[in-house]
Simulated assay, not measured.
Amino acid sequence: MPFACNQDLRIHYIVEGKGPPLVLQHGFSWSADAWRICGYTDALRDR
């Protein structure tokens, strides 16, 4: 799993598709998988 480090925090990220970056921030009780489950990553991957 790729991580970016900022001070004492490790931030996990996932790269999908190509092009300019788009950051999807999940809510408090969700995880990054929620964007896949709801179909957002598939819909945005080629854009």
Results as ranks from 00 to 15, higher is better:
residue 6 N to K: 14
residue 27 G to Y: 07
residue 45 R to C: 12
residue 45 R to H: 09
residue 44 L to I: 01
residue 17 G to R: 03
residue 44 L to C: 00
residue 1 M to G: 10
residue 9 L to W: 05
residue 37 I to T: 14
residue 18 K to I: 11
residue 17 G to F: 03
residue 8 D to V: 00
residue 10 R to C: 09
residue 30 W to K: 06
residue 5 C to S: 11
residue 29 S to Y: 03
residue 41 T to Y: 04
residue 2 P to K: 02
residue 12 H to M: 03
residue 46 D to M: 02
residue 31 S to V: 02
residue 32 A to V: 03
residue 13 Y to N: 04
residue 20 P to S: 07
residue 21 P to W: 08
residue 2 P to A: 12
residue 10 R to A: 12
residue 25 Q to W: 14
residue 42 D to V: 06
residue 25 Q to G: 15
residue 21 P to L: 12
residue 25 Q to H: 14
residue 40 Y to L: 15
residue 9 L to S: 10
residue 44 L to E: 02
residue 6 N to T: 11
residue 17 G to A: 10
residue 7 Q to N: 13
residue 24 L to M: 14
residue 43 A to R: 08
residue 21 P to G: 14
residue 40 Y to P: 00
residue 44 L to W: 01
residue 34 A to P: 01
residue 2 P to E: 06
residue 19 G to T: 08
residue 39 G to Y: 10
residue 5 C to Q: 13
residue 43 A to V: 01
residue 22 L to E: 05
residue 16 E to F: 03
residue 9 L to Q: 07
residue 1 M to V: 08
residue 47 R to N: 02
residue 1 M to D: 05
residue 29 S to I: 10
residue 21 P to C: 04
residue 4 A to V: 13
residue 35 W to R: 03
residue 41 T to W: 06
residue 29 S to T: 11
residue 31 S to C: 03
residue 7 Q to A: 13
residue 44 L to G: 01
residue 46 D to N: 15
residue 25 Q to T: 15
residue 36 R to K: 15
residue 14 I to Y: 03
residue 42 D to L: 12
residue 10 R to D: 07
residue 30 W to P: 01
residue 45 R to K: 14
residue 6 N to I: 13
residue 10 R to M: 10
residue 33 D to N: 13
residue 40 Y to T: 07
residue 42 D to P: 00
residue 23 V to P: 05
residue 34 A to G: 08
residue 20 P to Q: 09
residue 4 A to H: 09
residue 14 I to Q: 06
residue 27 G to H: 06
residue 31 S to L: 04
residue 8 D to A: 04
residue 27 G to L: 09
residue 33 D to Y: 05
residue 4 A to K: 05
residue 14 I to M: 09
residue 45 R to V: 12
residue 41 T to S: 11
residue 30 W to I: 01
residue 35 W to L: 03
residue 32 A to S: 14
residue 8 D to C: 00
residue 2 P to F: 01
residue 15 V to A: 11
residue 13 Y to M: 03
residue 16 E to P: 02
residue 38 C to W: 12
residue 13 Y to H: 08
residue 35 W to S: 01
residue 2 P to L: 04
residue 32 A to K: 06
residue 28 F to I: 11
residue 31 S to G: 08
residue 41 T to V: 15
residue 31 S to D: 08
residue 39 G to K: 07
residue 27 G to A: 07
residue 47 R to K: 09
residue 8 D to Y: 00
residue 11 I to K: 00
residue 7 Q to L: 10
residue 13 Y to R: 00
residue 3 F to K: 07
residue 15 V to S: 09
residue 13 Y to V: 04
residue 45 R to N: 10
residue 46 D to T: 02
residue 43 A to H: 06
residue 25 Q to V: 15
residue 22 L to S: 00
residue 10 R to E: 12
residue 16 E to D: 11
residue 34 A to L: 13
residue 14 I to D: 09
residue 20 P to K: 12
residue 20 P to G: 07
residue 17 G to H: 01
residue 18 K to Y: 07
residue 33 D to H: 07
residue 19 G to C: 09
residue 3 F to M: 09
residue 19 G to N: 05
residue 27 G to S: 06
residue 23 V to D: 03
